[in-house]
Nucleic acid binder design. Structure first.
Lengths: 216, 216
DNA sequence: CTAAAGCATACTACCAAGTATGTTTTAAGG
DNA sequence: CCTTAAAACATACTTGGTAGTATGCTTTAG
């Protein structure tokens, strides 16, 4: 019996995770009881505690899924051989599209960003959180790399990287706070939103020509 | 005995609010007990429940304070008669400076943005939340106004206002997630950070000249 | 056929919000 | 000053909700 191997994992885990993400996203983590999640999938606590050791581990699993989902969308774009501006723009679009397409997962993560730094947890959970932090760092480094290269390149405005990185990432994450699918919204609409935000993010990094207010 | 008048209010309320904001910001709202807050000011539950009816009202009070504090910094700048770009930039700087100067208050608000939309609450609390939403709307409208004018003016890139507004506001709010005062940090350092972020926000709204990646 | 995985049910333990009530301090008036 | 009532707080208690557990039943796989 492998402890960690998700080898033969049926989709029970995934079903639970989806429900958990949905509940956490709708009511918040603390306001969601395990029974809520169980009821959402027509089951009971037993099923959930059979697959996850604790509520915290459930949250950790959602967080990990979120990062993996986003990485799966963005990393291929990152690996394509493009110049900094084009590369950043396509990465940004992929990121935003991921945000709005799996909204529950990502909303949970953003709203519980600082939950990883504190709180008691079993040694087993500490390890999980460490792994998540590593994944998170790795993902951020994709953008950090592109931004740094762009600055050296002259493609981006030269400025403190850390502040720029965090600011731009938050800009790309912003949809989790306000986005909600409109009536009769098409995939093209979502792409348009993603493009607008990606454009703004790119502009935020662009060297400025010191434009002035138009004279009256 | 006036029910709502903060007329003769000593600084007991403010003391409690400061402690609550600090605790909520450090441990999160749900992870903070009333006793935690009481202990932080060397008192007991009794004192807190004498000034606030419930934990939720405490959170609401923090939220309200946050908005009022920010407004107090930004509104004067808004009222000064400047062209859109200059006006937006000074508003943005004031906003960011408020974020990092009263970090606990604003962090609490951002991390509990969606708590206002849900949750049970007494009729009295519903009213309070309604008032807060009104204040929030009013504050956002300051930026909405400037952005809209700038777009008509040609000072800003023309694009859907709502998305642009939310995106830029989140960019300005971002410091609450990552900022923490560094060793020997001066006021000038904080201004520099605020300027960098304000510059990025302004750039995000600026009309683009379709810059290309520099050729290798 | 049997053992383990998968899940349901019933129960326990505990924490923290809220309350009831008692005690001290303040402020005003005689 | 002394009285007294209200405000300002402390202490002790009640209670609901929920995480986690113990246990038993059912399905699947070998």
């Amino acid at each position: 019996m492998a402890l960690d191997s998700p080898a033969k994992a049926p989709n029970s885990r995934r079903t639970i995770l989806d429900a958990a993400a949905a509940c956490f996203a709708r009511q918040g983590f603390a306001q969601t009881s395990i029974d809520d999640i169980a009821r959402a999938i027509g089951a009971t606590k037993g099923k959930i505690y059979h697959h996850f050791r604790s509520k915290g581990e459930l949250l950790s699993a959602v967080r990990k899924s979120s990062i993996l989902l986003t990485s799966a969308q963005v990393e291929p774009v990152f690996l394509a051989n493009q110049a900094p501006r084009a590369r950043f723009h396509s990465m940004a679009m992929a990121h935003v599209r991921a945000m709005i397409e799996q909204l529950p997962y990502h909303r949970v993560v953003i709203e519980n960003l600082r939950k990883g730094d504190i709180g008691p947890s079993t040694p087993h959970e500490r390890a999980l959180m460490q792994e998540i932090r590593t994944l998170q760092r790795g993902y951020e480094d994709l953008f950090r790399t592109v931004i740094t290269q762009g600055m050296q390149n002259g493609a981006f405005h030269s400025q403190p990287v850390s502040v720029a990185l965090h600011s731009v990432l938050m800009l790309l994450n912003a949809p989790v706070f306000w986005y909600h699918p409109r009536q009769g919204e098409t995939a093209a609409d979502r792409v348009a939103i993603a493009r607008q935000i990606a454009d703004m993010a790119l502009a935020a990094l662009t060297p400025r020509a010191e434009p002035k207010d138009p004279l009256p």
